[in-house]
């Protein structure tokens, strides 16, 4: 494969103007990267050459990405494109075959306090005997460290977060008594309590009611105002341009990434989704309407 054809050429060109003219050889890129070393510490997320495989089959391949600070980022792609795998690889939850992930220029291991995570709602057992407040307080466990008790302050912070997602009245309920949307908001409150600088959210909008969807969008906007970076795995093409100001189109490789208005077009969508034309027409109509 020629270097010029690699998807990283697209990616880097979009992110750093400096790279755009010097993409032809690998060596030159590396030289330039050294100049950028300082800037990386300001960059919430930098991914280089990331490949993850399950059973020797690559799920995501040769991913290069840079996410600027303070953006709401949507990761979009068909089923099986590796969207969840991408964020799990960023969080060190799945082993990487190759490549590296930098959070503010350092390894994840060193900067984990600055990272918040909202897993898929279906990933936990909602019959588990804990209250809503217990779950939200789990957001403080990372800061507390091993063997420390959950303090009064953690609980107060958790109540505050529950207030922000409108669930104060449910604090002492067991989590199975919540609706799907309320469960999702519980997870978001827990992420708020983590007080991170960069958030990874895995399908927070999947099967939630309209009220919850609005609440989540409002929350994302609040986080953006505070200068946080939020990276969201998203399914619904019709809302991408509404919710996200930066879009990553993913199908095993990064097809395209950049400001939503530049990247989210029919051409790129076709390259991401391949032959699924009905879906594409739908999306195109939505884009036309917006």
């Amino acid at each position: 494969m020629l270097w010029a054809e690699s998807p990283r050429a697209f990616v880097r060109k979009d992110f750093f103007g400096i790279f755009s003219l010097e993409m032809n050889t690998r060596n030159k890129v590396i030289i330039k990267e050294k100049d950028l070393e300082l800037d990386l510490s300001l960059q919430p997320l930098t991914i280089r050459d990331l490949t993850v495989s399950y059973n020797r089959k690559p799920v995501i391949w040769d991913i290069d990405l840079s996410i600027p600070k303070g953006y709401l980022v949507g990761i979009v792609g068909p089923n099986g494109a590796g969207k969840s795998t991408l964020i799990k690889a960023c969080l060190d939850l799945v082993p990487r075959t190759s490549g590296e992930v930098m959070i503010y220029g350092k390894t994840y291991h060193k900067e984990r306090r600055r990272v918040g995570y909202v897993p898929q709602r279906e990933s936990v057992d909602w019959d588990f005997p804990v209250s809503v407040l217990d779950v939200v307080a789990m957001g403080t466990y990372g800061r507390l460290g091993w063997m420390r008790r959950v303090s009064k302050r953690s609980k107060a912070l958790s109540m505050e977060a529950l207030d922000r997602v409108g669930l104060v009245d449910y604090a002492n309920r067991q989590i199975s008594q919540l609706s799907g949307g309320q469960q999702q908001r519980t997870f978001l409150a827990r992420a708020l309590v983590q007080d991170a600088d960069i958030y990874f959210m895995d399908e927070p909008f999947s099967s939630v009611d309209a009220a919850t969807e609005r609440a989540i969008v409002q929350l994302l906007k609040d986080l953006k105002k505070l200068g946080k970076t939020v990276i969201v795995v998203h399914h619904d093409l019709s809302t991408v341009s509404q919710y996200f100001d930066w879009t990553v189109l993913l199908n095993m490789r990064v097809v395209s990434a950049g400001p939503t208005e530049e990247v989210f077009n029919q051409d790129n969508l076709r390259r991401t989704y391949g032959g699924k034309l009905t879906l594409l027409t739908q999306a195109a109509n939505e884009i036309a309407r917006n």
Binding site: Y117, F128, G142, R149
Partner: peptide
């Protein structure tokens, strides 16, 4: 107790937090 609770309920979150 805290570690057992979080790693039983949501092992992935626990791991991302360093537990």
């Amino acid at each position: 107790f805290k570690e057992l609770r979080i790693s039983s309920f949501d092992p992935e979150l626990a791991t991302t937090m360093g537990i």
